[in-house]
Design a binder for these strands. Structure first.
Length: 578
DNA sequence: CGCTTTTGACCTGCGC
DNA sequence: GCGCAGGTCAAAAGCG
C-alpha cells in the first residue's frame, strides 16, 4: 500500500522535470495548479498559455522558440524590449515551475500523511479483527493456532489481506449444523474483507464490508437484496453486483489467476457456440466469489473471464495480483471514479471508460452482455484488441446513468502485440499479465513496454499447463536471473514464494523474506496496493490449513515445480481469484 | 474414498 | 402470461 502512493509521488516528481501532461492523469491537484502558470504570465504568447506546465528544462527550449518567433521583422529596440520581456516571462515561468514543484511536494507530503493515516487505521482495524476472531476461535484449537499465526503476521509484516479463519476441512454437514460457528466465521470474514477493501477505498470501508455479512450470494439471496434502488443496492452490496470482466488471450481452458475454483455449471449461451463455465472459489467454503469463463465467439483464443464478488480469505500470492487489480477495478467502477490514481492498484494502467452503448457493442454475440445487469468493468489484457473492442481510446465520460448498465474497460496491454507473451517449455501460452498488473513502477502512467522483466513475473505466477515437467531452459533461467536481479519487486515476490515453500512454519524463512522486502523498500516501486499486500500475505503456519497443496504459493506456480494440466482441480491453485 | 466435473433439471428475471 | 435466456442446483459419473 505504501508503495503505491510513494510510486505516485515519484512519478509526479519526475513529471516535474519532463512530461507534465501526465500529471493531469495522475493528479487532479496538479491539473488545478496548471492554470496558475498562465495567471502569472498574462502577457505570454499562446504557446506559453498552453495548459501544459513545462519543466525547468523545457523552459529554455520554449523561450528559444518564442525568441526566434518574435525576432522576425522587428527593430532592434523592439527586439531588445521583446527580449527583456521574454526574460521576464522566463523568470516568471521558472518561478511558476518552482511553485508548481513546491505544490507537488506539498501534495506528496499530504499523500504521505494520508498514507500513514490509512496505515494506522488499517492496523487498528486489523488488530480489532484479530481480537474479535481470537475471542471467537478460542473454541477451536486450529483457529487459535491460526490466530496466533495472524498475530505473528501483525508483528512481522503489519500488512495482510486477512486471514483464513474457517476450517476448510469442515464438511457441509458440520457447516450446516454449526450455524453459530458459521456466523462467527462470517463475522471474521467481514473483517477480512473490510481490511482488504479498506486499502482500496478507505472511504467505502463501511460499505464494502456489507455484502460479506452475507454468506454465499445465491440467486435467492441476491434477490432479497435487490429490492432497493439501484444505487442503494450498489452501495450496500457492491461486491455482489460489481463484475470485472477480463479479456485475455489464453490457450488454457481457464485463465491462470492463482486461485482455486470449482466448476459448478456449464451452459451454452446464446450467440456463442462456446459453452460458458461457471466456477466458484473453493479456497474458503464461504467465499462468495464466482467467475464465468467463456471463449470469445469472434476470437476463440480470447478467454473472457468474469469475476464477481470479493474474496473473504487470504489469497495465494500468485492470485493477489489479479485479485487486487480486479478488485480495484471494481472499486473504481463502483465509486464512479475516473482517475486511476484513486485506485493505486490500477495506477499506471490505461483506463478506458465507455458508455452503455459501447459496452453492448463491445460484447456482441458473447452473451456476456447479460452482465450488464451488473456494473461491469472490463480489463482488456489482450495486446491486440479485437475490432469489436473499440476502447483503446480514452474517454473521460464516465457513465452517469444507471450504474447497473455501466461498463468500464481497462486495457492492460500495450499497443504492441504479444505483451507479456511467455513461452516456456515449448508451450506458447500467452501470459496476459503485464507487469503493471503486479504493481511495477509505471512512471507517468505509461504501461511499460514488454520486456523480459515485464513478462517474467507472470511466468512465475502462471500455472504450468505443460504436459511434461520440463527443466527450465537456459535462456529462461537467464531471463529469470535477469528479472530477479533487475527488479527488486520481483525479488521480493520470489523471496516470498521461496519462503512459503521452504520455510513453511519456519519463522526464519519469513524473516528472510521480510528482510528482502523491507530492506529493499520494494513498496517504493510497487504501485499495486493489493499486490503489495500480497507480498505480505504470508502465513507460514496457516498454509497447512488450506485445502489442497500449499495455498500461499502452489509449487506448480514456479517453473521448476511439477506441472499439472490446466483443469481447475483444487490441487493446482493456479486459477482465478478476484 | 473424497473430490471434481458433467449435465439435465429447475428457478428466476426480463422482454414482448 | 408466456417464452427465452441466464444462472444455479444436485445427482451421477469420472478421476486420482
Amino acid at each position: 500500500m505504501e508503495g503505491s502512493l510513494v510510486k505516485e509521488k515519484r512519478s509526479r516528481d519526475e513529471d516535474i522535470g519532463g512530461v507534465a501532461v501526465k500529471k493531469d492523469k495522475t493528479s487532479a491537484a496538479v491539473v488545478v495548479v496548471v492554470p496558475k502558470v498562465g495567471d502569472k504570465i498574462p502577457d505570454c504568447d499562446n504557446d506559453d498559455m498552453k495548459p501544459s506546465s513545462p519543466g525547468i528544462k523545457d523552459l529554455s527550449s520554449t523561450s528559444n522558440k518564442v525568441s526566434v518567433k518574435s525576432d522576425t521583422g522587428r527593430t532592434e529596440a523592439e527586439c531588445s524590449l521583446a527580449s527583456s520581456s521574454r526574460r521576464k516571462k522566463q523568470d516568471d515561468q521558472l518561478e511558476s515551475a518552482k511553485a508548481e514543484m513546491g505544490e507537488v511536494r506539498e501534495e506528496n507530503q499530504r499523500l504521505k500523511m494520508y498514507l500513514n493515516r490509512i496505515m494506522k487505521d488499517y492496523q487498528k482495524l486489523q488488530l480489532q479483527f484479530y481480537h474479535t476472531v481470537g475471542q471467537d476461535s478460542n473454541k477451536s484449537p486450529v483457529d487459535h493456532q491460526e490466530q496466533q499465526a495472524g498475530e505473528e503476521e501483525i508483528e512481522l509484516v503489519s500488512l495482510t489481506l486477512g486471514r483464513f479463519s474457517g476450517d476448510s476441512k469442515r464438511d457441509d454437514k458440520g457447516k450446516a449444523s454449526s450455524s453459530s460457528h458459521g456466523k462467527e466465521e462470517e463475522k471474521g470474514n467481514a473483517g477480512l474483507s473490510l481490511a482488504l477493501d479498506y486499502k482500496f477505498e478507505a472511504s467505502k470501508s463501511e460499505v464494502d464490508d456489507e455484502p460479506l455479512q452475507n454468506p454465499i450470494p445465491s440467486s435467492k439471496a441476491l434477490k432479497t437484496t435487490d429490492s432497493g434502488g439501484d444505487d442503494e443496492v450498489l452501495q450496500q452490496n457492491p461486491a455482489k453486483k460489481a463484475r470485472v470482466c477480463v479479456r485475455t488471450r489464453c490457450d488454457t481452458p481457464t485463465m491462470i489467476d492463482g486461485c482455486q475454483w470449482r466448476k459448478y455449471g456449464q451452459k451454452i449461451a446464446k450467440g456463442n457456440p462456446c459453452p460458458r463455465a461457471y466456477y466458484r472459489c473453493t479456497v474458503a467454503q464461504s467465499c462468495p466469489v464466482r467467475k464465468q469463463v467463456q471463449r470469445c465467439a469472434q476470437d476463440m483464443s480470447i478467454l473472457i473471464t468474469t469475476y464477481e464478488g470479493t474474496h473473504n480469505h487470504p489469497l495465494p500470492m500468485s492470485a493477489t495480483a489479479m485479485a487486487s487489480t480486479t478488485c480495484a477495478a471494481a472499486s473504481m467502477l463502483l465509486s464512479g471514479s475516473t482517475s486511476t490514481s484513486s485506485h493505486p492498484a490500477l495506477h499506471g494502467l490505461n483506463v478506458y471508460l465507455s458508455d452503455n452503448s459501447k459496452s453492448k457493442f463491445y460484447l456482441p454475440n458473447t452473451s456476456l452482455s447479460a452482465a450488464l445487469s451488473h456494473p461491469t468493468i472490463t480489463l482488456d489484457l489482450n495486446s491486440t484488441p479485437s475490432p469489436s473492442f473499440p476502447f483503446n481510446r480514452f474517454s473521460s465520460a464516465y457513465p452517469t446513468t444507471s450504474r447497473y448498465n455501466t461498463s468500464t474497460s481497462l486495457s492492460f496491454g500495450s499497443p504492441e502485440s504479444n505483451t507479456g507473451l511467455l513461452t516456456y517449455g515449448g508451450s506458447s501460452q500467452q501470459q496476459p499479465y503485464t507487469k503493471s498488473l503486479i504493481g511495477s513502477l509505471n512512471i507517468n502512467g505509461r504501461v511499460p513496454q514488454p520486456t523480459i522483466e515485464n513478462s517474467i513475473y507472470p511466468y512465475f505466477m502462471q500455472k504450468n499447463h505443460q504436459r511434461n515437467p520440463v527443466q527450465p531452459l537456459p535462456d529462461t533461467i537467464a531471463a529469470a536471473t535477469k528479472a530477479i536481479t533487475a527488479d527488486p519487486n520481483f525479488r521480493s515476490a520470489l523471496a516470498e514464494a521461496l519462503t512459503s515453500i521452504i520455510g513453511a512454519g519456519n519463522n526464519g524463512g519469513g524473516d528472510l523474506a521480510q528482510k528482502l522486502k523491507w530492506g529493499e523498500q520494494t513498496f517504493a516501486v510497487n504501485g499495486n496496493i493489493g499486490c503489495g499486500s500480497s507480498f505480505f500475505n504470508k502465513s507460514p503456519s496457516s498454509g497447512g490449513s488450506q485445502p489442497g497443496s500449499s495455498i500461499f504459493l502452489p509449487p506448480n506456480a514456479l517453473p521448476f515445480s511439477t506441472p499439472k494440466n490446466a483443469s481447475t482441480s483444487p490441487g493446482d491453485t493456479g486459477n482465478h481469484s478476484y
